[in-house]
Design a protein around this nucleic acid. Sequence first.
DNA 1: ACGAAGCCCTGCAAGC
DNA 2: TGCTTGCAGGGCTTCG
Length: 271
Amino acid sequence: MPELPEVETTRRGIAPHIIEKRIKKAIIRNPNLRWPVTENMADILKGQVIKGVDRRGKYLLLSLTEGTLLLHLGMSGHLHLLESACQPQKHDHIDILFEGGLCLRFRDPRRFGCFIWTKEAPYEHPLLKSLGYEPLSNDFNGTYLWNASRDKKVAVKNFIMDSHILVGVGNIYATESLFSAGIHPKRAAGRISKARYDALAKAIKAILKHAIEAGGTTLKDFLSSEGKPGYFKQALKVYGRAGEPCVQCGTNLSQCRLGQRGTVYCSQCQT
DNA sequence: ACGAAGCCCTGCAAGC
DNA sequence: TGCTTGCAGGGCTTCG
């Protein structure tokens, strides 16, 4: 389940290998993603050159000669970079073959991802236009969260997972950062002090940065390692540990559901 | 306008 | 062993 650190690791992994490479051919095996891949995608991509690889939230932006590819990995998506196009496996929906033999392969078993072509300014695209702050940017801080949360009754966990407020914080990192900041996930967003939002913003930045650095260790092997970003389950203090003892106080961790998502927290440490 | 629920999909784990 | 069932989840969309 790629969250922002995995997407950023993917971006850094593929960028140096594909920038300035010309697309020889694209193969769409299964166009039925979150939104159907446009019918003439293969024709559109053929002959274009990759000019840049950027990220906005969990979206990857591949800048091409004549427009932009917007990719989202959903929750089961992966981009693999292959020296050559070997036999595709189940769920390998899209291949982009470059001159010279390199192959960028999009795999997504659950097909929650997307693969969209736009000729317009990409940041004006409906999917990107109303996205909130980047958590690692300097603009994002506790003051912003505090200001944006006034009068909001929604649970703080749902609040920080709202991509219109800030991007890239999914269930895992929301759960972990609330634990780190000592904030109860069900607390109403509008009833949290500025000081606590300062702590929460710092926690979000620290945890995301740490995960990106951890992923970075696999970057030099991105080609050979099939592009598996480092994902360290042992670094998780609460997510997936319901019923197990809190690492801080030993209390058994509680679980509830918030916005259809499993939520683990410590009833002692998080208030 | 806001908040909550629904929906898309497959793999995996648990239960019978 | 082989079924069936339930759950997981990002985020757009719809409903109240």
